[in-house]
Design a protein around this nucleic acid. Sequence first.
DNA 1: ATAAAACCTCTAGTGACTAGAGCTTCAAGT
DNA 2: ACTTGAAGCTCTAGTCACTAGAGGTTTTAT
Lengths: 145, 145
Amino acid sequence: MIYSIGQLSKETQCKIPTIRYYEEIGLLDKANRSEGNQRQYTSQQCQRLHFIRHSRALGFSLDEIKQLIHLQDCKYDEPHQAHHCEPNAPHLAHQIAQEHLVDVRNKIKELKSLEKTLLKIINTCDNTDSTDCEILKSLNTIKAE
Amino acid sequence: MIYSIGQLSKETQCKIPTIRYYEEIGLLDKANRSEGNQRQYTSQQCQRLHFIRHSRALGFSLDEIKQLIHLQDCKYDEPHQAHHCEPNAPHLAHQIAQEHLVDVRNKIKELKSLEKTLLKIINTCDNTDSTDCEILKSLNTIKAE
DNA sequence: ATAAAACCTCTAGTGACTAGAGCTTCAAGT
DNA sequence: ACTTGAAGCTCTAGTCACTAGAGGTTTTAT
């Protein structure tokens, strides 16, 4: 199966300029071109883009994804391949995922305390018809926790 | 009290280039200059920067903050001032805050489901010494919820 | 008087895209 | 075979909220 960039875009729900951008920064390999210079993708490349999109949806950065892809390549490469491969790719992948989990949990904590503060601000001004709403004042004094 | 940019920076915990950036985009008024062209700030401007920083800490975008500042100015301006002022600034401020609260809550929801997915991925590969870790495979197939 | 710290402007870079201009190629219908 | 419109191409620039660095000037302390 061969995909044009538009078909790939539909298949992966990834916008066309984004696909080109991924190629530009080396996250996707350079696509083969047709006689008329249009990009052609294999199902393997489609698979890879799926991987990238799922990882993005989970909040991994493009840099983390680059690492994960490298680890993936290690996994499947024959040992005699030229490029350097980690001896324990699965372990590293595990580590990246766990570090990311820590980030996510921290972010949740922050947002919850933020929610509390916002609620406090909004509630000091319950009466939306009041001409002496406290919100603007609050933002001068209340500190985020 | 008159502040140099460095003093203002210390007072508000806002980095110097950021202060200049806020001036550039019109979030802070242009500062008065000394004979030697260095910026000088009043405590009013310091107050405003505090407001901005607190709002940022609460996750308001600079655009939202611009709106809030405008509303604040309306509140204190005499009615005969030239520029257009909202008739019910407090109400609008309330609305901006509430919309932001909704955003925050959505973000929390997203992150929680993300946390679940990450955990699932990590747990399918409990044994970090395994040479057949499932993480990389998972990222190909598991979808974020 | 001199040296160091603080300030100035200007340019460019970050991450992860997105939008638009202006051109070429492809596929379908007549 | 011809035309037309969709889809593709490259390149530049914009988004948000800063941050970093170069290279120069001013202020402050000794």
